[in-house]
């Protein structure tokens, strides 16, 4: 029973740790499916986290915080769009620039506004998204096996967690069952064909980036307003890049993305849990090995040893209407 409880706890933290990855990963899915590489997921999450926590603590409202997180994150996505769609700049360079600007400006403005060394003030309970307890969760807690699963895994998360997981079927529906999704995928594979059909490539890609900005904004808000209760500098700590890795791991598909993010979240949860504890058979696993595992797995996948990851064909190439 102890083992079972430990397992439930690891799964619970897996869910908590994979939510920001999942949101960022789906964000990347929209833009990469539309043919825009986005290295700047990290930066957009960071500004989202900062804007969310800052607005929530100033206006004392979690919802306003979330709104601001989305707004600022979309604004940064639009900078990316302006550089890489309108001016046909290098998408990777633009993403790197966004990461730099985000890292610097969040600390600068945070220090200027709140004078706490780049942090935002700690958020009061009303200013963050609290946990939602599902009906009967406490009553069922003592039921063996099913009780803890219901009470710990399904119930007791914040609203953003459920939104993140609902975004998976929603994204699938948008991409594969709507006209917008069909066009979005087409513009990532063959923009010239979309253009010939009389649809604006630029506007379509801008809309894809708006979706990206909204989702990275929610991801950022989750980090600073659910997981942490305030903004801390560089709090994304490479999650944007892991999300990118998960996106490749998922072969640019929404449901796969969920499993990839859960896997990477699980590795993270496991490495926290196993710190210093020896495993049976293998012996003591260095923490660094567990931390590097998502990246190593992605490289192995990219090398084509676990199936082949084929990116959208027009990814990274600016569309030039006429030569």
């Amino acid at each position: 029973m102890d083992l079972f409880n430990a397992f439930i706890q690891i799964l619970d933290s897996t869910i908590r740790l994979s939510v920001p990855l999942l949101l960022a990963c789906l964000a990347g899915l929209y833009s990469e499916r539309a043919g825009i590489f986005d290295i700047g997921l990290e930066g957009k999450m960071l500004v989202g986290a900062f804007a969310g926590a800052a607005a929530a603590s100033v206006f004392h409202s979690a919802l306003l915080g979330l709104g601001m997180a989305i707004l600022i994150s979309v604004a940064f996505a639009m900078i990316h769009g302006f550089a890489s769609i309108t001016h046909r700049g290098n998408q990777i360079v633009s993403g790197v620039a966004i990461n730099f600007i985000a890292a610097g400006s969040t600390i600068m403005l945070g220090q200027h506004w709140f004078q706490q060394g780049g942090r935002t003030p700690a958020l009061a309970p009303g200013e963050r998204f609290g946990a939602i307890t599902w009906p009967g969760a406490d009553a069922l807690r003592d039921v063996p096996i099913l009780g803890p699963i219901y009470a710990e895994l399904i119930s007791g998360h914040s609203i953003l967690v459920y939104i993140a997981f609902l975004m998976v079927p929603f994204t699938w529906w948008v991409l594969f069952r709507t006209r917008f999704g069909l066009r979005l995928r087409a513009v990532g594979e063959n923009p010239a064909a979309v253009d010939t059909a009389g649809i604006s490539v630029a506007w379509l890609r801008y809309r894809a980036l708006i979706c990206t900005g909204v989702l990275t904004g929610i991801a950022g808000a989750y980090l600073s307003m659910v997981q942490n209760g305030g903004f801390v500098k560089d709090m994304t700590a490479g999650k944007g890049y892991i999300a990118l890795a998960a996106l490749i791991f998922a072969k640019w598909k929404p449901v796969n993305a969920m499993f990839a993010c859960l896997l990477f979240g699980f590795l993270d949860a496991l490495s926290i849990r196993l710190q210093g504890t020896p495993l049976p058979v293998i012996g003591k696993v260095p923490v660094q090995f567990m931390q590097a595992l998502p990246y190593v797995l992605t490289v192995i996948l990219l090398a084509g040893f676990i199936g082949k990851a084929i990116p959208p064909r027009a990814g990274g190439v600016p569309y030039v209407k006429e030569r």
Partner: peptide, 10 residues
């Protein structure tokens, strides 16, 4: 970041 943005991407 601004230099990368204006001298690179833009």
């Amino acid at each position: 970041g601004l230099v990368i943005l204006f001298a690179g991407a833009l």
